[in-house]
Design a protein around this nucleic acid. Structure first.
Lengths: 108, 108
DNA sequence: CTATTTAATCGCCGACCTACGATAAAGAAG
DNA sequence: CTTCTTTATCGTAGGTCGGCGATTAAATAG
């Protein structure tokens, strides 16, 4: 028996159900992935698991403010998480969200 | 053992190979999917396999020119194909391209 | 040939995106 | 307290996006 309490809005996905996903939410995630820099950031975060923002600034030929904005976009889309750690901020991939996105892509 | 010399463009994807994809191309496809209307069009084309442009205009609350533009974006991204059929144009999903995209997402 | 139908393209507009430098905020270090 | 480090935010400039109506192009119908 499935616990319905823990899933307020996203119906419990039977394996064969290929009924409508939410195009708005799906498109929003795709939009966040719709920039090469953000894709690179995501790949980097997957590789090293977690890192501080400045590290990402170092590997990209972009200003710190620009990188910060891209991180914000990824975070708003729910693809990454950031926790403040002293004066720095530590970012990491939200692997659960990424898995959810993959599931949506697969029913495409 | 992996042959590093050959990698003309789209190597035949060994199951375990999660080396670098092209972030530019991947982002370009995501960008095309980054609008709810285009996601809906893609889902519709998947359902009915092929249809004429006007049919898509009918199911969407948008002007014909707007729909035409969205179709152009999807076509430029390589996700759909369109063939002229008399005065009309018949669109259909490029299932191979979609499968390729899914493969990219899965190595994300 | 002249309509009619169907799509694509053009031009316009407001909104959003992406880059940057400058500035603000907040903790660590002296 | 002051300074340094690290990140987020602001403001701005140029470009792109997304919508529309109007127009053009191409094939069919009469």
């Amino acid at each position: 028996m499935v616990d319905l309490n823990t899933l307020p809005e996203e119906e419990d996905r039977a394996p064969g159900a290929d009924d409508g996903m939410d195009p708005e939410r799906f498109a929003a995630i795709c939009k966040a992935l719709g920039h090469p820099v953000r894709v690179r950031i995501l790949e980097y975060l997957k590789k090293i698991d977690r890192c501080v923002c400045g590290e990402i600034v170092d590997i990209l030929p972009l200003a710190q403010s620009t990188v910060s904005q891209h991180l914000k976009v990824l975070k708003s889309a729910g693809l990454i998480m950031g926790e403040v750690n002293g004066p720095a901020t530590c970012y990491c991939l939200d692997r659960q969200a990424l898995a959810g996105f993959k599931a949506l892509v697969y029913r495409l």
